[in-house]
Design a protein around this nucleic acid. Sequence first.
DNA 1: TCTAATTGCTATAGTAACTGTAGGGGCAAG
DNA 2: CTTGCCCCTACAGTTACTATAGCAATTAGA
Lengths: 162, 162
Amino acid sequence: MAYLSIGQLARRSGVKVTTIRYYETIGLLEEPERTESGQRIFTDSDVQRLSFIRHTRDLGFPVEDVRALISLQADAEKDCASVDRIARHQLGAVRRRLTKLEALEAELKRMIAACEGGTVASCSVLAALGDHDDCLVGEHEGAELMAVPPSKRSCPYSDWRC
Amino acid sequence: MAYLSIGQLARRSGVKVTTIRYYETIGLLEEPERTESGQRIFTDSDVQRLSFIRHTRDLGFPVEDVRALISLQADAEKDCASVDRIARHQLGAVRRRLTKLEALEAELKRMIAACEGGTVASCSVLAALGDHDDCLVGEHEGAELMAVPPSKRSCPYSDWRC
DNA sequence: TCTAATTGCTATAGTAACTGTAGGGGCAAG
DNA sequence: CTTGCCCCTACAGTTACTATAGCAATTAGA
């Protein structure tokens, strides 16, 4: 069994030293043993654990999901359904981001293609950014499609000069 | 020219009231006129400006880039090159995210397909998360590929019990 | 006209998931 | 023994907002 300093663990796991300490403070990692002088001592199982965390984070799971997965791991009797549910949820999120990014790529390509070195005044990139109408990115999830009812007058308060 | 309250502006632009005020504090939006009682007064040009900001943010540009684009817009004599550069940079970032997300989607699909309702002990989702070797997500940009030189002993300090 | 509901205001704190800084101590090599 | 790197804690900063508290203004309904 090899013992590792935090720096060695960082190099082996690909997780930065400061991040390892951060994971300890938020309880993702158990508090490790210490030397007499107070330096942390890690083992290969910490490399495993950190690799798991890192991989899961790289897959885009939020830290709370990582925490949930770890606790599931600890209790091997539970069924796979929770894990599956978390993974499916994540897959949905990934697909939504993917769709949005694809539209975004197309939009940027279109904008760049249209930009041919004129002045800003004639630059269609800025025009495209200001113009929602021919936007390829559909997922503006706010309320700009929420029409303002014509009954609402454009002057909000009675004492305003409109 | 119609005058708008902050709430009306929020509905028209799709940017939340609190976010509008936030944009004002960080200087993305000029300080608007006020009524005698202190309420903000906006106009259609603010709708334009906010739509621009929102669209640009939706495209994934960081706020600082939005700020840069706005200042470029203000100076119509400058050439298009800066705008083009910012957009190209953004396109690169989008493509990197896209590649990673695609690998990620494949990985998740693979994991879910392998999860067939057993117990956690036999669940391959957790196994896949712990196992880097057959991972489809290549972009672990840390140092786990940085081999630990065999010359380095695994005991970091001479006084450790290894 | 009175009142309740909505909207607005400021200021401050909280969020995620870290990263950076200050100010110190430990450890091996030349 | 000193140079230089690694480690420690504690706290502040980051991004782009969001939430909360506590209050004032405005509007809509009875």
